[in-house]
Amino acid sequence: MSILIVIEESNGAVHRMSREAVVAGQALGRDFDLPVSAVLLGHDTSDLCQSLDSTQLHEILQADHPLLGSYSSDGFSRALAQVIESESPRYVIAGHTYMVRDFFPRVSAKLNIPFLADNIAYRVEGGALTLTKQILAAKLVADVAPAGDGPCIISFQSAAFQEEDVAEGSEATARQVSISLEDGSIRTTSEEPFQEAASAVDLSSAEVIVSVGRGIGKEENLPLAQELAAAMGAELAASRPVVDSGWLEGYHQIGSSGQTVAPKLYFALGISGAIQHVVGMKGSKNIVLINKDPDAPLFELADYGVVGDLLEIVPKLKKALQA
C-alpha cells in the first residue's frame, strides 16, 4: 500500500498543481504512515523524472509507452488503470487540472473505484479520510468520504496546498512500469494546441484592474466600468460569464481558462467569486468587491467589501475620484 501522486507535465516541467499534489500526498503519507511515490505517464519522461530528483519520494514510477507520447484520454486512462492495478495504492492523488478532469473519471469507471474530485482540504479521524469540497458556487462546503476501504482517486483544487511546502529529500528510486497498449487502442487524434487572437492588453503587468462580472447586468452597463477604469488608470478585465455573453473579448478574461493576474488592486464589480475565477486573481495585493449579493463568496477574499448597487455606486465613485 502506498500513496501515489500522478505528475503532469506542463511546458517541459512539472505542472504547478502537480507540485501542490506532491505536498498533499506527502502529508497523507505522514498521516497514514505510508510510502509516497509519484507516477509519470508519457514517453521518454527521463527529464521530468530528473526534475523530481530532490523531492522526497519513495519511488518515481515511469509508465512509459510510445502511444503515451502525446496526451489522449484513451491512452492515459488505460495506462493509469494498469498502474493502479499493479501497484495497488491506497490513494491516488493529483491536482484538479483540465487534463485530470478529462481522463480520471475514465479510470474510476474502468476500476469501479471512486474519484473524489476537486477538494480543498482533507482530515483524518480515527484512521478514516474525509475530504472537503466547495459546493453551490462556493457558498457552502461539504465533507465527502469514500464509501469503502478500497483504493480511491482524489484531486485537489488549485492552491489547496502550497508548492513551497514540497518536502525535499534524498534521491528517489526511478522504476519503469510496463504498460500494454495495443495498436488501435487510441481512438482519437489530437492536433497541435494553439492560442486564439493574441491579447491586446497585457493584464498580467497591470497595476490596477477593474474587473466586471455577471452582476453588471447587461452590456449597456459596461461603459460604467470602462469609465471607472479610465478614471483610475486601470485595465478592464472580466469573469467568464461576461465573455461568454459576448460583452467583452476573450482576452479580458481572468481565471482558469483566461489570464492569471496579481495587481496592486483588483477592483471587482458584480463578481460572485466562482473558484474558476478566483484562481486567476487571488494573488492580488488588494481586493475590493462591490456586489449586491452579501453572500457572494468573493467577499471572503476581499480586503474591502461593499454590499450595494454597483450601477449607483460606480458613477458616484468615478466622480469622487475625479474631484
Binding site: L116, A145, E300, D303
Partner: peptide, 22 residues
C-alpha cells in the same frame, strides 16, 4: 449498485480573511 462515495455533512465555510465591510 453499491455506493462509491458520500457526502457526510454540508456547512457554511469558515471565514479566514479580515474584510472591512463598508
Amino acid at each position: 449498485t453499491a455506493a462509491a462515495q458520500a457526502i457526510s455533512r454540508v456547512y457554511i465555510p469558515q471565514k479566514t480573511k479580515k474584510t472591512e465591510m463598508i
